[in-house]
Amino acid sequence: LTVQLGNLEWHFDNPEQALKMAEELAKRYQLKVEIDNGTLKFK
């Protein structure tokens, strides 16, 4: 699973870790998370 923020990307083997990080980033920057083809992206 990949977490993508702008041109930064983090790759996780563990989806739970990816979701946890995505939630933290979304909270911190007040963004919405969307999943696009196995990639978590922020809007």
Rank of each mutant, 00 (worst) to 15 (best):
E9C: 10
T39L: 10
E24Q: 13
L5Y: 11
E9Q: 14
K32N: 08
E23I: 12
L8S: 10
I35A: 06
E23T: 11
E34F: 15
A26G: 05
L8E: 08
D13E: 13
L40Q: 01
N14D: 15
H11M: 05
L8M: 15
N37Y: 03
R28D: 05
A22W: 04
T2A: 06
Q4E: 05
A22P: 00
H11Q: 06
L19F: 14
E24T: 12
F42Q: 01
K41V: 13
L31N: 01
Y29C: 11
Y29Q: 02
L25I: 15
L1S: 05
G38A: 07
W10N: 00
F12G: 01
Q30N: 15
L40N: 00
K32I: 15
E34I: 15
N14Y: 07
Q30T: 06
P15W: 15
N14F: 07
A26E: 05
K41Y: 11
L40H: 01
L1T: 10
T2G: 04
Q17C: 08
R28Q: 09
L19Y: 14
W10V: 06
T39F: 13
Y29K: 01
L19S: 04
F12V: 04
E23L: 13
L19C: 05
L1Q: 04
Q4G: 04
E16G: 08
N14E: 09
L1R: 02
G6H: 07
V3A: 03
N14R: 09
P15N: 07
A22R: 01
I35H: 09
W10K: 02
E34S: 07
W10A: 02
D36K: 09
L25Y: 10
N37R: 07
L5E: 01
L25G: 00
L1V: 11
K41R: 11
N7T: 13
K27T: 11
K27S: 11
E34K: 04
A26W: 08
G38H: 09
E23Q: 12
L1H: 08
Q4A: 08
L31F: 07
L25A: 02
L5G: 03
A26H: 03
V3Y: 02
H11R: 08
L8W: 15
K27W: 09
V33F: 15
V33S: 02
R28I: 09
E34A: 05
V33D: 01
L5C: 06
V33N: 00
L5I: 09
L8Y: 14
D36S: 14
Q30I: 04
G6Q: 04
N7W: 11
I35G: 02
E24W: 15
Q30Y: 09
N7F: 11
N7P: 11
G38D: 08
Y29S: 01
F12R: 00
Q4Y: 08
A18L: 05
L31D: 02
W10P: 00
F42W: 04
V3I: 12
A18Y: 03
F42L: 15
K41Q: 07
K41N: 04
T2Y: 06
M21T: 05
Q4V: 14
K27L: 12
G6L: 06
K43C: 07
L5A: 03
Q30V: 04
H11N: 05
I35M: 14
E9K: 14
Q30L: 06
Q4T: 10
A26D: 02
M21H: 10
Q17Y: 10
K32L: 14
E24P: 00
M21K: 09
R28K: 15
G38Y: 06
K20N: 09
T2M: 08
T2R: 09
E34L: 12
L40W: 05
K32P: 03
K20C: 03
L31M: 10
A26I: 05
K32T: 15
T39E: 06
Y29F: 13
N37D: 09
E34M: 12
A26Y: 07
L31W: 07
E24R: 14
E34V: 15
E16M: 12
I35V: 12
K43F: 14
H11V: 08
P15G: 06
Y29P: 01
M21P: 00
P15E: 09
E23N: 13
E16S: 09
N14M: 07
A26P: 00
Q4K: 12
P15M: 14
Q17V: 12
L40S: 00
Y29L: 10
Y29G: 02
T39V: 15
N14T: 13
P15S: 09
T2I: 13
L1I: 13
Y29D: 01
K41H: 09
K20P: 01
I35E: 08
T39P: 00
F42H: 02
K43I: 15
A18W: 05
E24Y: 15
E16C: 10
N14P: 04
A26R: 04
T2N: 08
L5W: 15
D36A: 12
G6A: 06
H11G: 02
K43E: 08
G38P: 00
Q4W: 07
N7S: 13
I35R: 09
V3L: 09
N37I: 03
H11L: 05
F42P: 01
T2L: 10
V3N: 02
A22C: 03
E9L: 14
M21A: 07
E24I: 14
Y29M: 05
L40E: 01
F12M: 04
L25F: 11
R28C: 05
L8T: 10
K27V: 09
P15Q: 09
K20W: 09
Q17P: 05
L19Q: 06
H11I: 07
E16N: 09
K20S: 10
E9R: 13
K43T: 14
R28Y: 08
K32C: 05
E9H: 13
A26C: 06
F12C: 11
V3H: 02
Q17W: 09
A26M: 07
T39H: 07
D13V: 10
N37A: 09
G38S: 06
K32M: 12
L8R: 15
G6D: 05
P15L: 14
W10M: 06
E9G: 03
L1G: 04
L40C: 04
R28T: 07
K20G: 06
M21W: 15
K20Y: 07
E9V: 15
D36V: 15
L8Q: 13
E34T: 12
K41M: 08
K32G: 05
G38T: 07
